[in-house]
C-alpha cells in the first residue's frame, strides 16, 4: 500500500511535468496548425541552461529564472526565423523542418556542453522529506513540482478562459481568418503563444534537471510521450492536455512499478525483467492506440 501511494505521487509528479510540455505543444498545434517536433529540444535547452548556470553560480534559484529567459529567447528566435515560414505549410514540411531542428539542437548542445550527462543538485531548502500521507515520507522537491504543475495548470486555465488575450487565443484557434479580418495582429498572437510554450517547456526542463540526468536526447523521449498525451487528449485542447497528462503519466509510472512485480509472480528472473520493462514502455502506446480507435480525434476534440 505504501508503494502504491508513493508511486501515485510519482505518477502525479510525472503527469504534471508532462503537462508543462503538452500544454505548449497543444497550444502551438491548435492555434498555428504546426507540428513542432523541436518542442522537446526547448525542454533540453531549458535543462542544460539550468544545469550550466547552476554549475557556474551554485544556486538553483539563479538557474531557474536564467533557464526560463534562455528558453524564451531561443523560442522567440526560433519562431521568428523558422516557425513563421511553416504556418500554412503541409504537415510533412513541418515534420521535416522540426526534425532538422532536433538534429541541430542535439549537435549544438553537444558542442556547448559536451557529450557526458550533467548533474544538477536539488536546492538545499527542498532537500527534505514530508509525510503528506501518514507513513509515506515523500521528497519535498518532487512535491514542489506537483504544486508548481497545478499552479501552472490553473494559471493557464485562467489565462485562456478569462482574459482578453485568452479570448484572442481561443478565437484564433477556431477561426484564424476572422480574427485577422477583425483587425487583430494574428502574427503577434502566434509569436506570443509560441514563446509561452517555449517558457513552459524550459520550465519543465529545469525543474526535472535535479531528479533526472541532463543529457542529449532527453528531449526526444519526453517529446514522444507529450505527443501521445496531446493526441489522447485531443489536439488543441488545454483540458485534453491536462486529462491526457494524468492518464498517460499515471499509466506509465504505475506500469513501470507494477508490471515487473506482476511478471515476477509468473516467470523467472530475467524473462520477467524483460517482459516487465517492455510492458511498461508499451502501455502508453497501447492506451493511445485504443483511444484513437474508439475516438479518432482524441478524448476532447477541439472545435475545428
Amino acid at each position: 500500500m505504501q508503494l502504491f501511494f508513493e508511486q501515485s505521487l510519482n505518477g502525479l509528479q510525472f503527469s504534471l511535468t508532462l503537462f508543462l510540455l503538452a500544454a505548449g505543444l497543444t497550444l502551438v498545434f491548435g492555434i498555428m496548425d504546426v507540428i513542432n517536433l523541436a518542442h522537446g529540444s526547448l525542454y533540453m535547452v531549458g535543462a542544460y541552461a539550468g544545469a550550466l548556470v547552476a554549475q557556474r553560480f551554485g544556486s538553483f534559484w539563479i538557474a531557474l529564472p536564467a533557464a526560463l529567459i534562455v528558453t524564451a529567447l531561443v523560442g522567440m528566435l526560433l519562431e521568428r526565423v523558422i516557425m513563421r515560414h511553416l504556418y500554412g505549410r503541409d504537415h510533412l514540411a513541418q515534420v521535416l523542418a522540426t526534425f532538422g531542428l532536433i538534429l541541430f539542437f542535439n549537435g549544438f548542445v553537444t558542442w556547448v556542453a559536451g557529450r557526458s550527462p550533467l548533474l544538477m543538485d536539488i536546492p538545499p531548502q527542498l532537500g527534505g522529506y514530508i509525510e503528506i500521507i501518514p507513513g509515506v515520507p515523500y521528497p519535498m522537491y518532487r512535491l514542489m513540482i506537483i504544486v508548481l504543475g497545478i499552479a501552472v495548470a490553473l494559471g493557464l486555465w485562467w489565462l485562456v478562459a478569462a482574459t482578453r488575450i485568452g479570448m484572442l487565443i481561443r478565437a484564433s484557434s477556431e477561426r484564424r481568418e476572422i480574427v485577422s479580418a477583425l483587425g487583430m495582429d494574428v502574427t503577434k498572437i502566434f509569436a506570443l503563444v509560441f514563446a509561452l510554450g517555449a517558457i513552459l517547456a524550459g520550465l519543465a526542463g529545469v525543474v526535472i534537471g535535479p531528479i533526472r540526468s541532463v543529457q542529449i536526447g532527453m528531449g526526444e523521449q519526453v517529446l514522444i510521450t507529450a505527443f501521445v498525451v496531446i493526441v489522447v487528449g485531443g489536439i488543441g485542447s488545454i483540458r485534453g492536455a491536462f486529462i491526457g497528462s494524468l492518464l498517460i503519466g499515471m499509466c506509465d509510472t504505475l506500469g513501470r512499478a507494477y508490471a515487473p512485480l506482476f511478471f515476477k509472480t509468473q516467470f523467472s528472473g530475467q524473462v520477467a525483467d524483460g517482459l516487465g520493462a517492455t510492458t511498461a514502455s508499451f502501455l502508453i502506446y497501447l492506451l493511445m492506440a485504443l483511444v484513437l480507435i474508439v475516438r479518432p480525434r482524441g478524448l476532447f476534440p477541439s472545435g475545428r
Binding site: V231, T278, S281, F282, A289
Partner: peptide, 23 residues
C-alpha cells in the same frame, strides 16, 4: 496529424517489444 502520431505509436510499440525480448 493523428495518422502521423498513431503510426509512430505502433512503431514505438514494436520497438519496445524487441527491446524487451532479451532472448
Amino acid at each position: 496529424v493523428y495518422f502521423i502520431m498513431i503510426t509512430l505509436a505502433f512503431a514505438q510499440m514494436v520497438f519496445f517489444i524487441f527491446v524487451g525480448l532479451k532472448f
